[in-house]
Design a binder for these strands. Structure first.
Lengths: 229, 229
DNA sequence: TGTAATAACTGATATATATCATATATTAAA
DNA sequence: TTTAATATATGATATATATCAGTTATTACA
């Protein structure tokens, strides 16, 4: 029995660490491991979820499509995160779609287990609450950035964020490779505008590129740019 | 004993309704009623809160100031809402400032009561969780609107929202009177740009104005405009 | 392995919105 | 009430970013 939750380090990073042995056993017994290929959806906007996803490996984007076909990425998920809790807790349709950015390994946990545990274990509720409080703060920050920063500043910020959160390889390229389209949808700009800015950053020596791959060269300057200098 | 929480209808609208008699008594014994004048702050960005606020009367704006002095309003609070919970739960500094838009009456509840109850009463945690889930969804929606809608669309949406949430008076003017500056900070635009749009809406007969006051004339058209037609 | 499909890139131009300047109305204060 | 301070309004102009059109490079696939 290799892949039991009891032995899974991932849970240390999320609210599942508040579960006791019994609860954890129940989760482990009912969970379903899934592999999601790059580009595939975990769930889509407006769907009703009958459980949550615990991310063991890979990165996904949470996004929303507008009527004119433009996508806005609201958040990138990290390893160890639980996805879909908002919808399960509010007993609501999902307000966002989740799409794998690279190959993912997730565990699906049926909602009954989650809601039962929420009702009985206040520590678990509190943990979930803390995580959601964190998400809410980040969302507020994004709102402010969207209205007060230029696309250039947001792009600089995104680069610094990606390096900080997902690291880079031996050659100094970001480990998480996004398409130009994804970048545009994160900073909220037209793809062409964004490509132009990447070219500009490259010309100024702030970043380097090799095909899709992007490497952060002048992290501090990018940070300053993001902060408005 | 008039103003005891036990007799306060307001709590039916927020997570405090999950409290049992004993818990409610404790809250009531330790709460402090406060009157906040229009323009005064309940708390400011970066502060540490030693409690939460339960809004009995009045409206406040949650906002963040940027380095260049521009303010972004993230949310308007409603009667019955609890403010400051995110910060208390995450044991974190506030990420937003709260300022009274009109005269307010709030009850301050010390954080110990809140955290103790969160630890002992899973129903309360769950209620708080549901409210935060709702806030998070709204925040996500704002992010998407900020990036995908024009200022004009966002303004139209704001008018419809204000009418729906705060109603209007006998003469058809919005009950909640905001300054042009506040409007600009809600939709994330320069004040002059916003004023111009108000003039335009007025010219087209979508709204009417009388000094600061704004009345919604063509609600449906505004809604359509907000949705992109 | 070659060809189609898709993504990345660049240029020209249009447009929404910001900024600066200034006038008028409204509110606060002396 | 009169003056000062602040908010609202409008015009002219600048600027960031979107849009449209087209080219080159990559990737997928038959």
């Amino acid at each position: 029995m290799e892949n039991r939750c009891e032995n899974c380090i991932i849970r240390q990073f999320n609210s599942l660490r508040a579960l006791n042995k019994d609860e954890l056993k129940k989760v482990s017994d009912s969970k379903i491991s899934k592999k999601i290929k790059r580009g595939e959806a975990l769930f889509i906007e407006g769907q009703k979820l009958d459980g949550v996803f615990c991310v063991r490996e890979g990165v996904s984007k949470l996004s929303k499509l507008s009527s004119n076909g433009k996508e806005q990425i609201v958040k990138l998920t990290n390893r160890g995160e639980i996805m879909g809790q908002r919808s399960v807790i509010a007993e609501d349709f999902t307000n966002l779609s989740a799409t794998a950015i690279n190959d993912m390994e997730v565990c699906f946990i049926p909602k009954e287990i989650i809601t039962n545990t929420l009702n009985s274990n206040p520590y678990f509720s509190l943990e979930v609450l803390r995580h959601m409080a964190h998400d809410l703060k980040e969302a507020d920050d994004v709102i402010v950035n969207m209205s007060q920063k230029t696309v250039k500043q947001r792009l600089a910020e995104a680069f610094v964020y990606l390096k900080k959160n997902y690291g880079d390889d031996e050659e100094g390229f970001l480990s998480l490779t996004l398409s130009r389209d994804d970048y545009a949808n994160i900073v909220g700009a037209a793809t062409e505008s964004l490509i132009r800015m990447i070219s500009e950053f490259k010309k100024k020596g702030l970043i380097k590129t090799e095909g899709k791959k992007i490497g952060i060269v002048e992290e501090e300057t990018l940070q300053e740019l993001a902060d408005g200098f």
